[in-house]
Design a binder for these strands. Structure first.
Length: 487
DNA sequence: CGCCTTGGCAACTTACTCAA
DNA sequence: TTGAGTAAGTTGCCAAGGCG
């Protein structure tokens, strides 16, 4: 008799995505790696659960400090003795499967179960998720009359003062969940059988990235050649297949003249030669930029739970910080910026200081069109500043397309993002040297922590300086790129 | 002339690449 | 998750050309 394997709900969901993934999670968890995609959604969405609980002040959280079996017992005690109290994270186990339900309300003779999601719509795979919860909780003796999915209502506008009434939209999915009930025991028993067998052989494919990126990609995916075909910019699936069929694995395998796309051929040629190419036109264009030059970069927030009055969930491009290196004459550079973690509504003072520092003339140098859309967003919020902001927009010079058209280095591996370009031009500027905040995502997380009332003052100060260092490095990177390409 | 294919062009859609 | 920008792919239309 083998020991029963305890499946959590999330393990069943990962098994539905790919059996091999579930097998690895159970038997080889040490191979797991963090994937970038999940940290990003986490940074934006991690407050949703808290707000859902805030909206039900009479509710009680079932913790699991004393282990999950204690949580199961406590759930039962609460349902028996305090049936009217809504429960957060009510915990049930049935036939070797464990789930924690986001919210459980007493309703009529049974319960209403609510699953809270940080997305803005009902996704198909959420229904499988809820079907498992329903199967386990009803199976273990808790009657469920209704299942709801609470997702973010994008049209919600935050009125301020911590009032999040209306942030979540409740959708009745009881019928869809019941329709899936016959599938759940099949999933469970087939997973249990699969888990007591050797590693399932599953080819890599779509399921490795959809609907969620698998943390075992590095284990399953074959080692990539140094310059994989996928590093050809915007390569189509057709061409990729054609090249693979011809037996090419690495960009350097492709014979000269084979690629019809000029940009592909350029990347191939430079990769083979190992030498970067700079079209002199670029140097000329950059040298022609007049002074004073303003190198500008924003850090913005687009959180699932809006924190500023008048903003909406996932409303993108809301700035909380900017950095600007001002080059008054060649090499004569001063640093300016805005960040105020004590200001509860920072956008307006941020915009005012921007207008003040950027003055009336001189190119505003950015990398990508992002900064332009941030300024547009600011103008929407403050119509009285709109005139000045529109004038800033007209001065913006986006150097990304210029760099893309005229510069390539083999180490860029088909990407012209600033993080791919910078190391080839200014290796001494290293994002890895920064503590904690080394990309835009981390900046958002740091800002959220810095403004949180629960954060201690020394920690706030540390986060504040990390944010300054990061944003400053971003604009300094642009200065270096422009300087090193201006020849 | 009818019938078909082919190439070119514009309009539209999709997919990817930046940024946070 | 958003949004701007763009390359690539799809579709529909028309004219030109081959052929019986």
């Amino acid at each position: 008799m083998t020991k029963p394997i305890h499946l959590s709900k999330s393990r069943i969901l990962s098994g539905l995505q790919c059996e091999k993934r579930l097998w690895l999670e159970v038997h080889r968890p040490e191979l797991k790696e963090d994937s970038a995609g999940t940290t990003f959604t986490f940074a934006l969405g991690n407050m949703v659960g808290e707000v859902a609980q805030q909206l039900v002040p009479e509710g009680k959280l079932i913790g699991w400090e004393n282990g999950l079996s204690e949580a199961i017992k406590e759930t039962k005690r609460m349902i028996d003795n305090n049936p009217e109290t809504p429960l957060f994270e009510a915990t049930f186990s049935y036939k070797g499967v464990l789930i924690r339900a986001d919210i459980l309300f007493k309703e009529d003779a049974g319960h209403r179960m609510v699953e809270v999601k940080g997305s803005t719509s009902v996704k198909d795979y959420y229904l499988d998720d809820c079907a498992v919860q329903y199967w386990v909780s009803t199976g273990s003796g808790c009657q469920i009359n209704k299942v709801e999915l609470a997702h973010i209502d994008k049209t919600f506008v935050y009125p301020g003062d911590g009032n999040y009434q209306g942030l979540l939209k409740h959708v009745d999915i009881t019928n869809e969940v019941i329709a899936r009930q016959e599938d759940v025991p099949r999933w469970v028993s087939s997973f249990q059988k699969m888990l007591s067998s050797p590693t399932p052989e599953i080819e890599i494919g779509e399921q490795c990235v959809t609907p969620y990126e698998c943390p075992f990609c590095n284990f399953c995916w074959p080692e990539e050649p140094e310059y994989p075909l996928t590093a050809l910019p915007r390569i189509s699936q057709n061409l990729l297949k054609e090249l693979r069929d011809k037996g090419f694995q690495d960009i350097r395998d492709i014979p000269p003249g084979y690629l019809s796309n000029d940009n592909h051929e350029r990347v191939r040629r430079i990769t083979v030669s190992g030498k970067p190419e700079i079209n002199p036109i670029l140097g000329q264009k950059l040298q022609d930029l007049p002074y004073p030059r303003y190198y500008l970069d924003f850090e913005t927030l687009g959180a699932a739970v809006p924190i500023w009055k008048g903003t909406s969930p996932y409303q993108a491009h809301l700035p909380f910080q900017w950095s600007c290196h001002v080059e008054n004459a060649p090499g004569n550079i001063v640093h300016e910026g805005y960040l105020d973690i004590y200001e509860t509504e920072p956008m307006r003072p941020l915009g005012e200081k921007l207008l003040e520092v950027l003055g009336k003339s001189g190119p505003i140098i950015t990398y990508s069109a992002f900064e332009k859309s941030v300024i547009t967003k600011l103008a929407d919020f403050f119509p009285d500043l709109a005139d000045g902001l529109f004038k800033l927009k007209e001065r913006i010079v986006d150097i990304l397309p210029m760099v893309r058209d005229h510069y390539y280095h083999p180490d860029m591996h088909g990407s012209w993002s600033i993080k791919a370009v910078l190391p080839t031009l200014a290796p001494e500027l290293n994002y890895g040297d920064l503590e904690e905040v080394h990309d835009g995502t981390a900046a958002q997380a740091a800002y959220m922590e810095a403004i949180s009332p629960g954060t201690e003052i020394p920690r706030k100060k540390a986060l504040e300086s990390h944010l300054w260092e990061y944003c400053k490095l971003d604009t300094l990177a642009m200065v270096k790129i422009v300087h090193n390409l201006s020849r």
